[in-house]
Every structure is written in structure tokens, then in C-alpha cells.
């Protein structure tokens, strides 16, 4: 099911997306795929637009990132996007692809039917084309102090952890901070100025459950706030859109449970 609202919905006219350029079909292509890609250049003096590209699937790699690189190399060098590792570990190429957020490098072209619509991460301010401004969400990440905090004197070697305690980090330490979940969270769309969002809260949980960390109480104090934590209404978009298969909603549920448990 596609989104049921028109593309230009709401009163924020600066964010409306105009029809863009339709780039020519490549000559001699056997199987073409249509890509509709969000374009915005602050220096053009114009608002965002949706350009249409036709890609020869026969001479393109399997992933959406391959198509983006092909467009940049062969059709339109001005197309701007972040990418680095091309194997799902750096988190740079997260974007809205076919109505959900995923890493362009791990999203197969053939798994999407029809024309493939690509937008920057939902509700992030746009810097250029598919590159978003992450300053706000990174500042929120700093609030939860994502590092080991200890009171005890540092040991001679490493801070040790039992295998049982290490297992508690599974499903949480793998987060690559691509912010697919945060971009897909309706609560973050409406209250992102104060709500920390699923990615940051999952990171918060990762440090709360770390047996080596000694600031658990302080961390929970930081989160005990109507907006920072409790704007999560378990909509589950975060868990569904995580390209690493993690469960931010579960991490948030666990934090809420810990806040209740410590009152008794």
C-alpha cells in the first residue's frame, strides 16, 4: 500500500515538492527501472523537486545504492547523497526508499515493484538532495552521554564483563546510528524538538544495561521526562524499518519498565 496523502500536503510550502526534470531513457536498454528522486539545492533559489531517472537494470548493480552511483556517474553528476561502506555497516546511505527507511546499499532494486521513490530521511531538514542535516539528532545523542561512565578507579587492564552480562548488549550494540528509525517515527515527526527518538533511546538503553557502567541511576534521571522518553506510543515503525533488524521499541519499553521498577 502506498501513502494515501498527496505529496504536497500541509501548510509548509517551503517543503512542497515540485515536478522535476524527466531524464532520457538510456539507448539500447533491455529492462529499465524508473527512479523518482527528491532533489533540492539551496543555491538554486527554488524549492525541492522530484526528478525522474530511467536506469538500464541490465548494466546496473543489484542495490539501490548502485543505481544512485550509476546516475551520478553516467546521467547527472549533481545528484548528492551520503555513502561510504556499501555493505550496511557505516549507516551513511539511510534514506526513504519506496515508503520506508532503509540503507540504499542493502536495499535490492528488484524487491521494489514499480517506480522507486527516494526521499531524504523523513522530517529531517534537507541540506542538499538526499543529504540531511543531522545536527539536532546528534545533539540529542549527546544528551544521553553515549560513553562508559564509572566511579570506581580504572582497572589495570580492561573493564571486565561476564559473558552473561555481555549477552545483554546483543541487539543493541549493533546500532550503526543511521537514524532510519528516527526518520520513520511519527512521534518524532510531531515532537522531534524534545522527544529523543528511537535511535537515541536505543543507544541510551545500550549504556543503561551495560554491567560496566556505573551511572544507571543518572541515565534514568535524564530520560524520566514527558517528552524525552514518553512521546513513544509504541507505533512500531522504528522496529519495522531498522535495516539492522534491531528493536528500538523494545529498548524503549525496557527503559519505561525500569523507571517503574525503581519506584518500588
Amino acid at each position: 500500500m502506498r501513502a494515501f496523502l498527496p505529496l504536497n500536503f500541509g501548510t509548509d510550502t517551503a517543503s512542497w515538492v515540485a515536478k522535476g526534470k524527466i531524464w532520457n531513457t538510456p539507448a539500447g536498454a533491455k529492462a529499465t527501472r524508473v527512479f523518482e528522486i527528491y532533489r533540492y539545492d539551496s543555491e538554486s533559489g527554488r524549492g525541492p523537486r522530484l526528478d525522474v531517472y530511467h536506469i538500464d537494470r541490465g548494466s546496473c548493480g543489484p542495490m539501490v545504492l548502485d543505481a544512485l552511483i550509476k546516475i551520478k556517474n553516467e546521467i547527472d553528476p549533481t545528484l548528492t547523497f551520503r555513502r561510504s561502506c556499501r555493505e550496511g555497516v557505516c549507516g551513511s546511505c539511510s534514506m526513504s526508499i519506496g515508503g520506508r527507511n532503509w540503507l540504499a546499499c542493502t536495499q535490492r532494486i528488484d524487491d521494489i515493484e514499480g517506480s522507486i521513490r527516494i526521499f531524504p530521511l523523513n522530517h529531517f531538514p534537507v541540506k542538499k538532495d538526499l543529504v540531511v542535516d543531522q545536527r539536532h539528532v546528534l545533539a540529542q545523542h549527546q544528551i544521553i552521554q553515549p560513553w562508559l561512565k564509572t566511579a570506581k578507579p580504572a582497572p589495570e587492564g580492561e573493564w571486565l564483563q561476564s559473558p552473561e552480562d555481555r549477552v545483554k548488549l546483543d541487539g543493541y550494540y549493533e546500532c550503526i546510528l543511521c537514524f532510519s528509525c528516527t526518520g520513520g517515527c511519527p512521534s518524532y515527526w510531531w515532537n522531534g524538538d524534545r522527544y529523543l527518538g528511537p535511535a537515541v533511546l536505543l543507544q541510551a538503553y545500550r549504556w543503561i544495561v551495560d554491567s560496566r557502567d556505573e551511572a544507571t541511576g543518572q541515565r534514568l534521571d535524564t530520560l524520566e521526562d514527558p517528552f524525552r522518553l514518553y512521546r513513544c506510543h509504541t507505533i512500531m515503525n522504528c522496529t519495522k524499518t531498522c535495516p539492522k533488524g534491531l528493536e528500538p521499541a523494545k529498548a524503549i519499553a525496557r527503559i519505561k519498565a525500569m523507571l517503574v521498577a525503581r519506584q518500588h
Partner: peptide, 23 residues
């Protein structure tokens, strides 16, 4: 002051069952 566009959200997100149930 340039008006920075916000990337489309509700307009382009594919509705999910849990999302509709929340509404």
C-alpha cells in the same frame, strides 16, 4: 533567511498496520 525544506514524512511513508492501529 532561507527557508530550509523538511523532508516529506507522512506523505511518503507507506502505511503500516501497527501505525494505522495506533491512529
Amino acid at each position: 533567511t532561507p527557508r530550509i525544506p523538511i523532508a516529506p514524512h507522512m506523505q511518503v511513508y507507506r502505511p503500516t498496520l501497527t501505525m494505522v492501529m495506533s491512529i
